[in-house]
Amino acid sequence: MRHEQLKKDNPGDNISFDIKDVSIKNICRGNVASDSKNDPTKEAASFNAMVILNHTSQIYAPFSIGT
């Protein structure tokens, strides 16, 4: 799906985009993008995580559970 435009993303989808005048060297995995002037990112009150126990093999990044 690389370089393919999507109308909708779903949980587990990895979405990327380019930002004019921002080097890929200045962006790290886990960074969050938002409109800092009109709608800044807010701290999460809580979040849900999936913990994988007793997996039959090694887990490498990126790892996702298929649907």
Rank of each mutant, 00 (worst) to 15 (best):
residue 36 S to D: 02
residue 27 I to N: 15
residue 63 F to Y: 04
residue 32 V to H: 15
residue 28 C to D: 14
residue 30 G to R: 08
residue 25 K to E: 06
residue 19 I to A: 07
residue 48 N to A: 11
residue 9 D to T: 00
residue 17 F to L: 15
residue 34 S to L: 00
residue 52 I to V: 09
residue 19 I to E: 05
residue 7 K to A: 09
residue 52 I to C: 09
residue 54 N to G: 03
residue 37 K to N: 09
residue 35 D to H: 02
residue 53 L to M: 02
residue 63 F to M: 02
residue 59 I to A: 11
residue 22 V to Q: 13
residue 14 N to T: 15
residue 14 N to S: 12
residue 35 D to T: 09
residue 65 I to E: 10
residue 54 N to W: 04
residue 49 A to H: 08
residue 40 P to I: 01
residue 65 I to P: 00
residue 44 A to L: 11
residue 55 H to M: 13
residue 60 Y to I: 04
residue 50 M to H: 10
residue 28 C to E: 07
residue 40 P to L: 02
residue 33 A to T: 11
residue 6 L to Q: 10
residue 20 K to G: 04
residue 50 M to L: 10
residue 16 S to C: 14
residue 64 S to R: 08
residue 65 I to A: 05
residue 48 N to W: 13
residue 33 A to Q: 01
residue 59 I to C: 00
residue 22 V to P: 00
residue 5 Q to Y: 10
residue 24 I to F: 13
residue 19 I to K: 01
residue 54 N to R: 07
residue 58 Q to S: 06
residue 64 S to H: 03
residue 3 H to A: 13
residue 34 S to W: 01
residue 59 I to H: 09
residue 49 A to R: 02
residue 10 N to S: 07
residue 42 K to E: 04
residue 16 S to T: 04
residue 26 N to A: 04
residue 31 N to F: 06
residue 28 C to K: 13
residue 57 S to T: 14
residue 14 N to A: 06
residue 4 E to D: 05
residue 57 S to R: 08
residue 45 A to T: 14
